[in-house]
């Protein structure tokens, strides 16, 4: 059996640079960076729900998001904010997770409409993911069915304040607590669930590897990877066997 990723259950390693160890220049740079981050937000809309209809007025002449420095973007690579408008079916959730993992940090998730908070009117649906924050770290919920553009903009402004203060760091949790999120994802999609993005490797690369990054659930993922000779985490070209299995569930 190939040892692809060493499984460390009780890893106490934390982020390389903790806040206290920063000197004054680094703090100044951080403050300035957060200042800029708060003033320039690129939004990726994942608009499969009904809340999408509230975004055009928020963008166009009535409310004009651009005066706050918020612009729509097209691909996850370019975007800072993943805007999920409304209910997320299980099939959609796979794509949402793929998209989220392809976004580059700092990245923020905003759940618009009640459905993202607790499933809303789809509470009894077998095919809807109820609580979005179980699968992704959500920075902000904007409740309502549906929230008006004013509410959306207020939510965005609150997020901007959080970013400027340097408090909007929940995206790091996805790396630090990957085991938890992966477990919830596996609960819905089954044990064969995997995405092209190698979160653990990224966590190591960006020094975001924490004690809860790995656990039973990531062990399951790695086991699956090794069993199917996937080794997708370092050389996806050998994914011959898995190619038909992916995304079937």
């Amino acid at each position: 059996m190939k040892d692809v990723i060493p499984i460390q259950t009780n890893n106490t390693e934390t982020i390389a640079v903790s806040k206290n160890s920063k000197n004054i220049y680094q703090q100044a740079i951080d403050t300035f960076s957060n200042f800029c981050r708060a003033r320039s937000l690129f939004v990726l809309h994942y608009c499969t729900g009904c809340g999408a209809i509230e975004l055009p007025p928020a963008m166009t002449s009535r409310f004009d998001m651009e005066r706050l420095g918020i612009q729509p973007m097209v691909t996850p690579r370019q975007a800072d904010i993943l805007l999920i408008t409304g209910y997320v079916s299980i099939k959609t959730l796979k794509r949402v997770i793929l998209t989220y993992e392809q976004m580059q940090g700092p990245k923020y998730v905003i759940g618009i409409c009640s459905c993202t908070v607790n499933g809303g009117m789809y509470w009894q649906s077998y095919a809807t993911a109820k609580v979005l924050s179980e699968y992704l770290p959500v920075d902000m919920y904007i409740a309502g069915c549906m929230p008006r553009p004013e509410a959306v903009l207020t939510g965005l402004q609150q997020l901007m304040k959080k970013i400027e203060k340097g408090e909007a760091n929940s995206w790091e949790n996805y790396f630090k607590r990957y085991d938890y999120y992966l477990g919830n994802q596996q609960h819905l999609f089954g044990d064969t669930w995997h995405t092209p993005t190698d979160i653990l490797e990224e966590a190591r690369h960006y020094h975001l590897y924490g004690a809860e990054s790995t656990g039973n659930n990531t062990a399951r993922l790695i086991k699956y990877t090794v069993e199917h000779d996937l080794t997708k985490l370092d050389a996806p070209l050998r994914e011959k066997d898995s190619m038909t299995k992916r995304g079937k569930k």
Binding site: K94, Q102, P236, R238, E239, R246
Partner: peptide, 22 residues
Amino acid sequence: NPRKQVTQWDNYAGGHFLTSDM
């Protein structure tokens, strides 16, 4: 900040999962 090299399957495809037979 540093960059990370990713594989060609970790690629934007409009939410589609890319595999090597594709």
